[in-house]
Design a protein around this nucleic acid. Structure first.
Lengths: 220, 220
DNA sequence: CCAAGTTAGTGTCTTTCCAACACTATGTCA
DNA sequence: TGACATAGTGTTGGAAAGACACTAACTTGG
C-alpha cells in the first residue's frame, strides 16, 4: 500500500444550524430525513458543496434553498470529519450557524419536513448533528458576552423590551431592566425611529432600529 | 448537467500554524516548498488527511511528522475551501494551530526546509497561507484575554518574568509588572517549585510550574 | 569587602465598571 | 375615573483594574 491509498477524496457538505427566537425560546430549524441512513430522524438542513462555489457560498445557498431566507448573519462554526460520522463514506461536514430575525419565519408555511425545535427540547438527531447544535449554542452564548450578535435576531424595528427578552431567551436567565438598557445604550448601535409600538392596554414602547444593520461589533 | 456533476470529491488537508516564542517574538514554523505550485516559496506544514483518521488525528500526525513535537496544545482554527485556492484542484484545508513551549525547539536541528519566522516579518506565503496565519494570530490574541492559553508556551519550569515576556511578545506591548503578577496569582494556575533560577549577576527568580499542565481555562 | 549594577519582588490609592434596587409615566379598558 | 399593565428612568456600594516607586538579593570589579 503506498501513500496514495491512504489519501482521501471526500464529500464535503455544508451543515446549517439555523437559529431563531420563537415564543421566547431559542429554536433551531431541523429537517426530517426521508432517506437512509437515519430515515425519519431529524437532522440539520445542509447538503453537498458544489465544485464551483466557496464554502460560504454553499452555506448561503443551503440557507436559501431550504428556507428561502437570505441576507442574515452567517458564520463558520467548525468542521467535523470523523471517518465514522457517516456510514456511507467519508463526509467532511463544514458547519455554519445562521441567525434569523424572528419576524421572518416564512419557513412555517413550508413543507412539513422542516420544523423549528426548541434547543432545550431537541429530539435525537441524525449523525453527529446533536454535537454540532451543542457547539453552535455554546458559541452563540459566548458571543453574547463580547459582541453585539444578538441584535441579528431582531426585526427591522423593535422595542427594548423585545430585545431584552431575546437576551433572556438565549442566556436562560432574567436580566435587570435598568442595567440592561444602560448597557444597550452604551453600545451606541441603536437609533430611535420616532415611531411607537402599541401592544395591549398599556403605555406604548419606542421602536428602535440598528444604525448599521448587518454589522456585528466586538465589545469590551 | 445533473446535480451529480456539481458535487465534489475533494482532497482534504490539515494545515498547521505552529507558534512558538523565539527571542521574545511570536514565531511560526514554515516549510520551504520544493514542488510546484509555489516551488521555492514558504508555506505552512501540512498534508492530506488519511482515510482512517479523524481531522484532529491528522493534525497531530502532521505535527509529529514534520517537527517531532507531540503533546502540545492544538485547536481547530477554520476551514478554507475556495475553489481557486489551489490550482491543482479542489482542496479543502482544515487549519489547526498549535502552541509549542519555547524550550522544545528541536526543530532547529531539522532539515533546512523548515524554519521559524517572526510573524511580524513573514515572507509571502504559498496559497492562502498568509490569510490562515493572520487568522490564527488573531485568534491567539483574542484568547489571551479570556483564557490561560499563553501558559501553553511555557516550558515545564519558568519564572514570572519569563511569562510576562511571553504575554508582551504576543500582545506587542509592555505590561506593568505588579499588575501582571497580581492577575497571574489570581488565576491560581501556578505553583512554586521551591527552586530558583540564576541568570546573570542579579537576584535569582523563583521557578513556577503549571498545576495542571495541559489545561486551558476560560477566565472572566 | 564594599560599591555599583541588574533583575526580582512587593502594596496602596484612584478610577472605572458592574450589580442591586423602586418608583413614575402613559396607555387601555371597564 | 380608577384599576391595570408595561414603558421608562438614577443612584449607590462594592469589586476589579490601572497607575505608580521602592526594597531585596545576587554578581562582579575595584
Amino acid at each position: 500500500m503506498n501513500a496514495r491509498d491512504l489519501q482521501i477524496q471526500a464529500s464535503v457538505t455544508a451543515e446549517m444550524v439555523i437559529f431563531t427566537i420563537r415564543s421566547e425560546r431559542l429554536a433551531v430549524l431541523l429537517r426530517r430525513r426521508d432517506k437512509t441512513p437515519y430515515a425519519g430522524c431529524w437532522g440539520l438542513p445542509g447538503g453537498r458543496v458544489h465544485a464551483d462555489e466557496t464554502l460560504e457560498q454553499a452555506a448561503v445557498r443551503q440557507l436559501a434553498e431550504k428556507t428561502g431566507i437570505t441576507g442574515v448573519y452567517l458564520e463558520q462554526l467548525y468542521t467535523f470529519g470523523d471517518p465514522a460520522r457517516d456510514p456511507r463514506g467519508r463526509v467532511i461536514a463544514v458547519s455554519y450557524y445562521a441567525l434569523v430575525p424572528y419576524n421572518r419565519l416564512k419557513v412555517q408555511a413550508q413543507p412539513s419536513e422542516l420544523a423549528w425545535h426548541r434547543v432545550d427540547a431537541l429530539p435525537p438527531l441524525a449523525f453527529d448533528h446533536g454535537k454540532i447544535v451543542a457547539m453552535a449554542q455554546e458559541r452563540l452564548c459566548a458571543k453574547l458576552d463580547y459582541s453585539t450578535i444578538a441584535l441579528q435576531f431582531m426585526p427591522e424595528k423593535f422595542t427594548l423590551s423585545e430585545l431584552q427578552a431575546v437576551y433572556e431567551s438565549i442566556l436562560g436567565e432574567a436580566l435587570d431592566k435598568r442595567n440592561f438598557r444602560k448597557r444597550v445604550q452604551a453600545l451606541d448601535c441603536l437609533e430611535d425611529t420616532g415611531e411607537q409600538f402599541r401592544a395591549g392596554k398599556h403605555r406604548p414602547a419606542k421602536l428602535f432600529r440598528l444604525k448599521t444593520p448587518g454589522r456585528v461589533e466586538i465589545i469590551k
